[in-house]
Simulated assay, not measured.
Amino acid sequence: MIVRRIALAAGGTGGHVFPGLSLAEALVGRGHVVHVLTDTRGTTFHDTIGKTCTVHKVRAASPSQSGPAAKLGAIVQLSLGVLDARGILKRNRIDGVVGFGGYPSVPAVIAGSIGRLPTILHEQNAVLGRANRWLLNRATAIATSFEHTAGLSHTDIKVARTGNPVRASIAARRNVAYGPFGRESEFHLCVFGGSLGAEVFSNTVPAAIASLDKDLRARLVITQQCRPEDLEQAESFYRNIDQAATIQTFFNDIPEKLAAAQLVVARAGASTVAELGVIGRPAILVPYSHAMDDHQSRNAEALEAAGAAWCMSEDRLSADLLATRLRTLMEDPHKLATAARSAWDFGIPDAAERLADFVLEHLAERAVFKNPSEVEKISRGANRTSERRALA
């Protein structure tokens, strides 16, 4: 087997890090050598794949900061990061670079471009992110997560939809059945507000639950994530209306909670949308109104268009509107089951393997390999991987 040395560039939030982790695992599982270039926040890489991949820290910062001094400082840090990355790529004889968006990926992708290496971008959202927009002219290919990605209509580079890789613990619950449940059975409602919770959910969801009829409330099994500063208030509200609920600032078993849910109330970050699709759970999505380029609204709209979710604007969200939606769905098991199936159809559980195929095939197409016959070997290997997944 031909072993390739591939650099992955990701850092910052989990939405960029988790797909990088998944691709690293897929490539290492095929016997390739992976180097990870990340920023000071990318400690997740050390904790999870430090034994199988080499992790490098490069300097990076966001030029979107306010104030000319901060912007100038960020540009200096990014420039120094490019120097860091160029040295890492040369010393380790890297064959190609994969960037996962966010400014921590910028130095490695620019360094790869300067070194004339194949540079592949991965976009997790339905809107091309600022860093990826900035890097698009330097990239040789881009992998997307959604069928349509805003900001990508005019490009000459290779584009393929691979999906957004999810954690193995999520993919493992792909075939957990939804339901069955009836009008009188327990109804598991999960409320997640992203990695740090969401104030709007802490205030609005308990009030919406309070306005439901007693027979509906009696069925509810509520799991809700809250910000630390909202925890006491939410617990007190539920206690005052005599409503049982499991409320925490963080859950270690989110895959298990999602699989048990009949309905999810959540933000519409890329990872959340991908996970809902892989497990196949219907959701009420409330996009974060201050998300960059309003990308969460585009994510939510894509899932809603697939018949798998209901999108509610944060600006217009109220306890009454949410209660009406909850009441309607709890009284219509067929509608929820149909949405769950649509979510399942929307999901791409093998996105990490698809992305690995795309990366390796693109390296071959860009004539990285000195022996032309290696292109055919890579293609045959990718085809065998696809066949195994189809038979699984």
Rank of each mutant, 00 (worst) to 15 (best):
V3P: 06
I6Q: 00
A10K: 01
T13A: 04
V17D: 03
S22K: 05
L27K: 13
V28N: 15
G29I: 05
D39G: 11
R41N: 10
T43E: 08
T44R: 07
K51Q: 15
T52F: 11
T52W: 10
V55R: 04
A74R: 11
V76H: 13
G81W: 04
L83P: 07
N92V: 12
R93D: 13
D95W: 02
Y103Q: 08
G112L: 01
G112W: 04
T119C: 10
H122V: 09
Q124V: 02
N137W: 13
N137D: 12
N137I: 04
A143P: 04
I157E: 00
V159Q: 06
R174A: 07
N175T: 11
A177E: 08
S185Q: 14
L189G: 06
C190R: 01
G194A: 09
G194L: 06
S202D: 10
P206R: 00
S211V: 07
L216S: 05
I222V: 09
E232M: 09
E232G: 04
Q233V: 09
S236H: 12
F237L: 09
D242N: 15
Q248S: 14
N252Q: 12
L258N: 00
V265T: 04
G280F: 01
L285H: 07
V286T: 08
S289D: 02
D294M: 10
H295F: 01
N299E: 08
E304Y: 06
A306K: 06
G307L: 00
M312W: 11
S318K: 01
D320E: 13
L326I: 00
T328D: 03
E331T: 07
H334A: 13
A340H: 01
W344H: 12
I348E: 13
R354L: 05
A364E: 06
K370E: 02
K370Q: 02
E376I: 14
I378P: 03
N383I: 15
S386Y: 10
R388W: 13
